[in-house]
Computed example of a mutant assay.
Amino acid sequence: MSEAVGVAVLGAGHMGADHVRRIARAVGGARLVAVADPDVARAEAALDGLDVDSGARLYGDPLDAIAAPGVDAVLVASPERAHEEALLAACARGLPVLCEKPLAPDSTASLRVVEAEVRAGRRLIQVGFMRRYDTEYQRLKSLLDSGELGRPLMLHCRHRNVSSPPHFTTPMLISSSVSHEIDAARWLLGQELTAVTVAMPHPSANAPEGLGDPQLVLFETARGALVDVEIFVNSGFAYQVRCEAVCERGSAHIGAEHGLVTETSSGAQRALAQDYLARFADAYDREVRSWVEGVREGRTTGPSAWDGYLAALVAEAGVRAQREGVRVAVPEPAPRPALYA
């Protein structure tokens, strides 16, 4: 593809508006063609925030945006309940897609998306597990793959938010937040997650009524490693993502030193990120640039629809473990299509 990739962004909320800005300003080789949101005023506000005339058209229906003239690729940043319809429509038109996680609301819907992509005959979908594009995560991955520290035994993960949005529910701590750790653990270790246990202390006073926050999630892997995740979505002070790999001959950790440090006569102060868009800004930029480059070259890389399906299976087991207070084995997935070999 010699010309700039025409991108339709579906969803103009917090994440979608950031991607609108990114496509319009920060990603070479792409141009913003359409923005869709059921709240057209919100889509208009996302464009107004650019302070430039991008020429993008506004749509209330995402399917109209997918079918709009000049659209070569689709970036899905709408709520998860709208993902499946958009992904099926994009696959039917042969359009490459970058879809924010989760792939779909559940594993059954995710498998339908996988099947649609298989029918299309080639990989079209990349799932937005952006931690794979974070430089610290990439360095940790390279170290583990090198074997320098020996076999990984444990991953200790910490995932904290300042506060949760009003619609956030207890199952979403697993299905929405810990889903990032699910993919990161599979990728870092090169192992599948096979069982999950969830423990919950008495909820924090900062947690909204009825929300079981924080939680400790323990995953077992196919080759005997353990992954524990502290998920705390109403910490009240910062957005923090940290990971330590404990191996046979040493350990390595990332995330603790992230952020600007200011030193004055009053002492040293570290700026703490307040949300994921700040903490992973560079990762999002690299992710979208890589996706656009792939579209221009006619290839799709990064986390696949199959990765999204497997993450959904693990998350569902986690929600069941959370609800029932027992260890839950992750179900066997459907047969892996050759497309994802």
Rank of each mutant, 00 (worst) to 15 (best):
S2D: 14
G6Y: 01
H14C: 00
A17C: 04
H19L: 13
R21K: 13
R22P: 06
A24I: 07
G29P: 09
A30C: 05
A30Q: 03
A30L: 06
A36I: 09
V40L: 08
A41E: 15
L47G: 02
L50M: 08
V52E: 15
G55W: 02
A56L: 05
D61C: 04
A65E: 06
V74F: 07
A77Y: 01
R81N: 05
H83V: 10
E84A: 08
E85F: 01
C91Q: 13
G94L: 12
A104Q: 05
R112M: 11
E115T: 11
E115S: 12
A120D: 06
G121N: 07
V127R: 07
G128T: 09
F129M: 09
M130F: 14
R131D: 01
D134P: 04
D134A: 14
T135I: 13
T135G: 03
Y137M: 11
S146F: 06
G147V: 11
P152V: 02
H159C: 09
F168W: 15
P171T: 05
M172W: 08
I174W: 06
S177N: 15
E181H: 14
A184N: 14
G190A: 05
E192F: 00
T194E: 03
T197G: 10
M200A: 15
S204Q: 04
A205R: 11
A205P: 03
G210Y: 03
L211Q: 03
L211F: 03
L216Q: 10
V217M: 04
F219D: 06
F219L: 02
A222M: 01
G224K: 02
G224Q: 00
A225S: 03
A225P: 01
A225H: 01
V229Y: 04
I231Q: 14
I231P: 00
F232L: 07
F237N: 09
F237Q: 10
A238E: 15
V241C: 11
V241G: 08
E244P: 00
V246F: 08
V246G: 07
C247Y: 06
H253N: 07
I254H: 12
G255P: 12
V261S: 13
E263I: 15
L272C: 06
Q274C: 00
Y276M: 14
L277P: 02
R279C: 02
R279N: 02
A283K: 03
R286W: 04
R289I: 01
G294Q: 02
G294E: 06
E297S: 15
G298A: 03
T300N: 10
T300D: 01
S304Y: 08
Y309V: 10
A315T: 14
E316L: 00
A317V: 06
V319T: 13
V319W: 02
R323Y: 02
R327H: 07
V328H: 01
V328S: 03
P335T: 04
R336Y: 01
P337A: 06
P337D: 11
Y340F: 15
